[in-house]
């Protein structure tokens, strides 16, 4: 009797509940995104808030982006050099490093770093404002909290993530050059000429398109999780964790879809 109950009643019941919750959550997230978009079109436009967010998201993430970019480029060159040497194709090292950076690793890793550094901070900041009633206070002053708090963050993220990604690409390729050419002794001339001949503008545009969409994902998910934080200290911790995990997963999933369309 017991296994029957588990399989026939409890299991479908749970599956149903979870699916309903997922659908509901997705609906809420899209409505939230829609609100942010609509409020972006209406005055007041708050350029100072956007500038402040550019500083918070962009400047404060620069260091960690540069650091991860150098090491990513370096390890790529290291792996690439030994693989390519087996086929006597060390001359292609530059193109291998540059293309993986520009097409994939730059956008994905830089966005993951933005998520870890600024996305989590966004969730914590907005979540804290929720549980300390600051968001309610905004509403009582007839200020729309989505427009005041969320829209500037999302606009700033859309502007700044492509910049960070570009920086990641450049620094990463340079890191690859240092290891490949300076350390391992590949030829500098063939490194740069293979970069030049292999990288096309559409690779660059594709990478930047990814960057823009990742900027939307990071700010959207992280702000959403903060905005709907449960009213407790545990709620805040949970929201931050969930925001980082969900953003990272969505970035990787969306990256696959975008790549399959772009190729």
């Amino acid at each position: 009797m017991q296994p029957f109950k588990t399989v026939v009643i409890a299991l479908p019941g749970k599956t149903g509940r979870v699916s309903l919750w997922v659908i509901q959550e997705m609906g809420r997230m899209f409505l939230f995104l829609l609100q942010v978009g609509l409020w972006a079109l209406r005055p007041p436009f708050r350029p100072r808030e956007i500038l402040k967010q550019l500083h918070v998201i962009g400047f404060k993430t620069t260091f960690v982006v540069v650091l991860t970019a150098i090491f990513t480029g370096m390890v790529l060159a290291l792996q690439g050099y030994y693989s390519l040497r087996k086929f006597g194709a060390e001359a292609l090292l530059g193109s291998a490093v540059a293309l993986s950076m520009i097409r994939e690793l730059g956008p994905v890793l830089a966005s993951l770093m933005v998520t870890a550094r600024s996305g989590s901070a966004m969730t914590a900041e907005i979540g804290l404002m929720r549980i300390t009633e600051q968001i309610d206070a905004l509403e009582t002053m007839a200020v729309n909290p989505v427009q005041y708090l969320i829209t500037p963050k999302m606009l700033a993220a859309i502007l700044v993530v492509p910049l960070l990604v570009s920086m990641f690409d450049v620094v990463g390729i340079w890191g690859g050059y240092v290891v490949g050419v300076q350390l391992l002794g590949a030829s500098a001339g063939s490194f740069w000429s293979s970069v030049e001949s292999a990288v096309e503008w559409r690779d660059v545009y594709g990478g930047l398109l990814k960057a823009v969409s990742f900027g939307v994902i990071v700010s959207w998910v992280c702000c959403y999780k903060g905005f709907y934080t449960q009213m407790s200290a545990e709620g805040l911790g949970k929201a931050t964790t969930e925001a980082v995990v969900l953003t990272s997963v969505l970035i990787l999933v969306w990256d696959y879809f975008l790549t399959s369309v772009l190729l």
């Binding site: 300390t132 009633e133 600051q134 206070a137």
Partner: peptide
Amino acid sequence: FQSAALFD
């Protein structure tokens, strides 16, 4: 507000 709810 009871908590003052100042913008910190």
